[in-house]
């Protein structure tokens, strides 16, 4: 961790127009929650809606990975694409510190965008009932964006098309393929996040059923994040200045 690089990364993210896009995306759950509050049919079940459609649905499957992907690629990918990464790399700062600084800032930015909106949306829908659901998904989102940020940091260093590669992972691997091959749940950050969230509430299986138990989900999440960060450091140590091959 290097405070100067962290500060630089934070300024990079704040200065980018994509941040506005991300904030809009992150606020979507609040808008949905307000709509639910005012327009939902009388027979709707708030717990089911919060766990299945909102927090366990669009927030975890779409908004969480997208927001983290945009911030992680914005923190590192942009720097490498523009060629400015050289100014950080041509210093004796250990590569581990550079990776950690960028990863932590990307994670913190994602949390700042995701958590307040998700918690607010959950509270609006549930209105005080089922606090475990809100707390569970808050922890799940925090853990999920931790692993996503690590994975996408590595992708940003490893490939110039990190954004598309990340989309492929999120929507093709975690979205489509994991529905067909249930073993993929062990290799899916989304399932780690919902599995960890599941530790905090107990809903009937017909309402919401995580596909991983909390303990293995947490262990796998920690292992995956550590592996991704290790790969990211390794890749940065071997980073080569881009020249058209």
């Amino acid at each position: 961790m290097n405070p100067d690089i962290a500060r630089l990364t934070a300024r990079t993210l704040l200065g980018q127009r994509r941040t506005i896009l991300v904030v809009l995306l992150a606020l979507l759950p609040v808008a949905i929650a307000l709509l639910y509050r005012f327009a939902a049919p009388a027979d709707a079940d708030p717990e089911r809606f919060a766990a299945r459609a909102l927090l366990g649905g669009i927030v975890t499957t779409t908004i969480l990975p997208l927001v983290t992907l945009i911030f992680a690629t914005g923190a590192f990918g942009q720097d490498i694409e523009d060629g400015t990464a050289v100014y950080l790399l041509a210093t004796p700062v250990p590569r581990r510190d550079i990776v950690l600084a960028r990863f932590l800032v990307a994670w913190a930015a994602s949390l700042a965008a995701l958590l307040p909106a998700a918690v607010a949306a959950g509270l609006i829908v549930l209105g005080g009932s089922g606090p475990g659901i809100v707390a569970g998904f808050a922890v799940g989102i925090a853990a999920g964006s931790f692993v996503y940020a690590a994975a996408f940091t590595w992708l940003s260093i490893a490939t110039s098309r990190a954004l598309v590669a990340g989309l492929l992972y999120v929507f093709l691997w975690e979205g489509t393929l994991s529905g067909l091959f249930s073993g993929i749940r062990f290799l899916s950050i989304r399932q780690y996040a919902t599995g960890i969230a599941g530790a905090f509430f107990d809903l009937p299986a017909s309402v919401f059923q995580p596909r991983l138990e909390p303990a293995p989900a947490a262990v796998l999440a920690a292992l995956a994040a550590a592996l991704m960060l290790l790969l990211a450091v390794r890749r940065l140590q071997r980073w080569e200045a881009g020249e058209a091959a």
């Binding site: 630089l8 200065g15 060629g83 100014y87």
Partner: peptide
């Protein structure tokens, strides 16, 4: 890099930093 300085060919610099901040960042990283 403690004993080596590098000036890359590509023009890009951090556009939002002032010149002074940019050089001072390098000094801090060293």
């Amino acid at each position: 890099y403690r004993r080596l300085g590098l000036v890359p060919e590509r023009e890009a610099v951090y556009g939002f930093l002032t010149g002074r901040e940019f050089v001072e960042l390098a000094a801090r990283l060293h």
